[in-house]
């Protein structure tokens, strides 16, 4: 499955994922701690420099990931332009851009496997307490495995709908999609049980 990690490797790809996530949390907390447009503007410039350090293509990819912010930025511009609270609007807009771009930066430079490793590290205390985290690890793998399969079944249902009706397939194919998901779940559960279930290896 395609992940959002940027395939072009930058220096940030080689930094430990845990470090990047910790830095991101700290930076985001700091962004929300200030209301001064000057500081937030500097933060946006800093994030832009971070993206540019990965090359022009990386910068453009980062920019296109910000497109979901446009409606909100237009809204803020209109709102604060009309009410005259320019500084407050600027602060909100700059903070949004900086926080979102920074979070995207971490996602774009961290491989899925590294992210999962951090997750498993964070869950280590639970394992110490004797709780199994195998269920979570297994379910993550299952979602990654079955999302394309369910999407494919949805596509096939859409095709068979089109073969029988001149109208577009709509919500009516959702019911069979849900039924197929339940069927898959039952079969996978049976297969797991047949292979010893969720017990950790070596428990028997």
């Amino acid at each position: 499955m395609i992940s959002l990690t940027c395939p072009v490797e930058t220096w940030a790809h080689r930094r430990p994922a845990g470090l990047k996530l910790a830095a991101l949390s700290l930076a985001t907390a700091l962004l929300f701690a200030t209301d001064r447009p000057a500081i937030l503007g500097a933060a946006v410039l800093g994030v832009a420099a971070l993206y540019l350090s990965g090359g022009a293509g990386f910068f453009r990819a980062g920019l296109s990931n910000l497109r979901l912010l446009w409606p909100f930025l237009v809204l803020i511009a209109l709102w604060h332009g009309l009410s005259g609270q320019i500084a407050a609007g600027l602060a909100v807009a700059l903070r949004l851009v900086a926080a979102l771009a920074l979070a995207n930066f971490v996602t774009m430079t961290t491989r899925l496997s590294d992210m999962i490793e951090v997750l498993s590290l964070l869950l280590a205390p639970f394992r110490r307490l004797g709780l199994s985290t195998r269920a979570l690890e297994l379910s993550i793998a299952l979602v990654i495995r079955f999302t394309p399969s369910i999407a494919d079944k949805g596509r096939l249902l859409g095709l068979s709908w089109r073969a029988r009706s001149p109208r577009r397939p709509g919500w009516r194919i959702v019911m069979p999609m849900a039924a197929l998901a339940i069927d898959d779940a039952e079969q996978v559960a049976e297969a797991l049980r047949a292979r010893g279930g969720l017990e950790p290896p070596g428990a028997r």
Binding site: T28, L68, L96, L100, L102, A103, T107
Partner: peptide, 8 residues
């Protein structure tokens, strides 16, 4: 990605 959790 993490960006959606920093969005509006």
């Amino acid at each position: 990605g993490l960006g959606v959790f920093a969005g509006p």
